[in-house]
């Protein structure tokens, strides 16, 4: 095995992003990808919604990923989101004991996604990353959960920095018990405000 190239300059330039394209569907999504919460957990919450484009049409070929702290506030995550059977290679699903904190779900033909998780500890939001055909570079946003955000209110530096109309795009809305609705609008469609997207310099 040849040696790897000598140590690179201390600050190598980043590899550019490229669109996820239309054909990731047989590669990236996995069974149980949206089920961060163990099955039947009494504290489980549902977060669901739609992804829309600038014409207000649902986006049926987006992939959404979610990352959050565990209910105890731990941010270390745990392996096993994609746990596989070494005999068949098939996805076994999470074993439900460890909290992996990670979800990955494609939107369906209606542009709709659903995840089931447990409320994050020591944070009032779930981090969201959006990929889609037509989107050359993925986007980050956050779904703030209303019952957790009220505790911190505008103490959250991001929410505090936004005008009310922009801030509202980051707020999931309660929709019955333990169910929250959170839409992603990739572009202002003339009626609805575009979602606030984030940069982490």
């Amino acid at each position: 095995m040849p040696e790897f190239a000598p140590k690179l300059a201390s600050k190598p330039a980043p590899t550019p992003a490229q669109t996820i394209g239309p054909f990731y569907g047989y590669a990236l999504p996995f069974t149980g990808g949206g089920d961060i919460a163990p099955t039947g957990h009494p504290d489980a919450i549902t977060l669901h919604g739609y992804v829309y484009d600038g014409a207000g049409a649902p986006v049926p070929d987006a992939l959404l990923e979610f990352w959050q702290p565990a209910p105890d506030g731990s941010r270390t995550g745990a392996p096993g989101s994609l746990r596989r059977d070494p005999v068949t290679g098939a996805v076994l699903g999470r074993h439900g004991v460890d909290f992996t904190g990670f979800a990955r779900v494609p939107t369906d033909a209606d542009g709709h996604y659903t995840i089931r998780t447990l409320p994050p500890g020591n944070a009032s939001y779930i981090a969201v990353c959006i990929f889609a055909r037509g989107l050359l570079h993925h986007l980050f946003t956050r779904a703030y959960l209303p019952e957790l955000t009220e505790l911190t209110g505008v103490d959250d530096p991001l929410l505090a920095s936004l005008e009310p109309r922009r801030r509202a795009t980051l707020m999931a809305t309660a929709e019955g018990e333990r169910v929250h609705h959170f839409d992603v609008r990739l572009q202002d469609d003339g009626v609805h405000e575009e979602t606030v997207f984030l940069d982490f310099p």
């Binding site: 600038g54 990352w67 939001y125 989107l135 530096p157 920095s161 575009e194 984030l198």
Partner: peptide, 25 residues
């Protein structure tokens, strides 16, 4: 890309407590 890109600038997050500074394993 025409209908699938945001027109407003991204909002920079410099919060050292941001959840996004940790990640899945």
């Amino acid at each position: 890309s025409v209908l699938r890109h945001p027109k407003k600038p991204l909002v920079a997050v410099g919060d050292p407590e941001a959840v996004e500074l940790s990640g899945p394993v």
